[in-house]
């Protein structure tokens, strides 16, 4: 898994996550995003176009970050999910608690509108 800061639009940070978010790598995601939150970032768009795989450990780390951001009046928006990742979100009901968008641009628009 790689986590790359891929853009910044006003107060919104775009982050690209590639590879696999599993029980081994998900804690790194949580740690990296927590670091950026501690630096003052509170609106994140996560580009999942190159994420191949996610397990419940990955979902859990996204949930932890989403809860943290909610308490700070921030948010996390996900974009561009590959089919099998999307399937995991659907089965687990996560697509109804975390906003998911077809493209990074749409997610950015929604993130900036708030």
């Amino acid at each position: 898994m790689e986590i790359i800061k891929s853009g910044k639009e006003n107060n919104l940070l775009v982050v690209k996550v590639t590879g696999r978010m599993d029980a081994v790598t998900a804690p790194e995601f949580e740690k990296q995003l927590t670091g950026w939150i501690d630096e003052g970032e509170i609106i994140f768009v996560i580009d999942f176009s190159a994420l191949e795989y996610i397990s419940s450990a990955g979902l859990r780390s996204i949930l932890v970050i989403a809860k943290k951001l909610k308490s700070l009046n921030g948010k996390i928006l996900l974009a561009n999910m590959e089919e099998s990742v999307n399937e995991v979100f659907e089965i687990s009901g996560f697509n109804s608690i975390i906003p998911v968008f077809d493209t990074v641009q749409t997610a950015i628009r929604h993130g900036m509108a708030s």
Partner: peptide, 22 residues
């Protein structure tokens, strides 16, 4: 409870749920 909202949503139990579904 997969219909719980973000504040109510529990962090555990999902793995087993996914095994059963898949």
């Amino acid at each position: 409870d997969i219909s719980a909202d973000i504040s109510e949503r529990q962090v555990g139990g999902l793995g087993i749920f996914l095994i059963r579904k898949l």
